[in-house]
Simulated assay, not measured.
Amino acid sequence: MTTDLELAQRLADVADRITTARFRARDLHVDRKPDRTPVTDADLAVEDAVRAELAEHRPDDVVAGEERGGEVGTGRAWVLDPIDGTKNFLRGVPAWATLLALVDGGRPVLGMISAPALGKRWWAGAGAGAWCRTGAGEPERISVSGVRDLGDAYLSTTHLGSWVEHHSRESYLRLVDACWENRAFGDFWQHCLVAEGAIDLAAEAVVNPWDVAAVQVIVEEAGGTFTDLTGAPRYDGGSALTSNGHLHAEALHHLT
């Protein structure tokens, strides 16, 4: 591997081979973790395979994954969500992906999101722009929308119920009422749609670092803005708001 991006593409290929083979498999094994979220045999297999590749090609880097743990320090760390959207995966819904991010000095500098059942892959490197490939097509550079009026904005979240427990359902509904349209595309996909300019805002009341480390660099390199719900541009703040940048401050105002 000559570059981190080449390695990230290889890691995504490794993950895709595992996940596509297990998607809609009749013998898929599902357990429930202590936080009551599901984990499948595919989640564990992907994380183990990616960790093995990193041990070979980047033995000095830290790895922090959803299933096997690990801590991000001040140096280089790969942050991994083997399957983001596990509930979709185990129910046969094709909106799921493997998320990989390289964090250096506490900030994501490379993001890779691969969603093989959707036929899509998104990636970005700090200073190198954000890109997407559909199927076997050529990579295309992506950018956020130019919508400047919240009344014209398209908004997404993951699960409305999470706002009750972790933030404020009323504040999210205030933002909904201020926008033109809303859906719940959920998880990684909504943030990638922001980066592509297909929608304008995506808000999540609760996230883990591995859910949004890759998202942050992709959205920012696409010209958008990423913060937690306090307005801090950090992937480990426990919540997330992505936007085209023009709408960010006004959206945060509704959410606070």
Rank of each mutant, 00 (worst) to 15 (best):
D236C: 12
G197F: 11
E170V: 11
T230Q: 05
F185G: 07
G197H: 03
H191N: 03
E220V: 08
V164M: 05
T225L: 11
R183V: 09
D200C: 10
A203G: 09
E220Q: 09
V212K: 05
F226W: 00
A213T: 00
F188A: 10
A198L: 07
V164L: 09
A203S: 04
I199F: 05
L160I: 05
A195M: 02
E221N: 03
P209F: 12
E181M: 01
W189G: 06
A184N: 11
A178M: 08
S171N: 14
R234H: 04
W180E: 12
N182M: 13
E221K: 02
A195S: 01
W189I: 10
L160R: 01
E204V: 11
G186Y: 01
H166N: 06
E170P: 05
C179M: 11
V219F: 10
E170G: 12
V215N: 13
E221F: 14
L201Y: 06
S162V: 07
V194G: 01
R183L: 15
C192D: 13
W180T: 12
A195K: 00
F226D: 00
I199R: 00
Q216S: 08
C179I: 03
V206L: 13
E165M: 07
V207I: 09
Q216Y: 03
L175I: 01
D187K: 06
E196Y: 12
A232Y: 12
W180D: 06
D187V: 10
T230S: 10
N208A: 14
E204M: 15
D211Y: 13
E204W: 08
Y172K: 13
G224E: 08
S168P: 05
A178D: 05
T158I: 06
L160N: 03
D236T: 04
D177V: 05
T225H: 11
D228I: 09
I199G: 15
H166K: 05
A213W: 01
S162F: 12
E165R: 13
C179N: 02
S162D: 14
V212C: 15
D187H: 15
V219M: 02
A203Y: 12
E170L: 14
F188R: 00
V217Y: 15
V206R: 04
D228V: 14
A213M: 02
Y172P: 08
A184V: 15
V206S: 15
I218T: 02
G237V: 08
R174E: 09
D177H: 11
T158Q: 08
A222D: 07
V194L: 07
H159M: 12
T227K: 02
T227S: 11
A198M: 00
A214G: 02
H166M: 04
P209H: 09
D228W: 12
V217S: 09
R234F: 05
H159Y: 15
R174F: 15
G197C: 11
G186N: 04
E165S: 10
R234C: 10
A214I: 01
L229G: 01
T225I: 13
S162W: 14
A214D: 02
G237T: 02
L193C: 13
G224N: 13
V219G: 07
N208R: 03
A213Y: 02
D211T: 01
V215A: 12
T225F: 11
L160T: 05
G161L: 06
V215M: 14
R169A: 11
E196Q: 12
P209Q: 06
G186C: 11
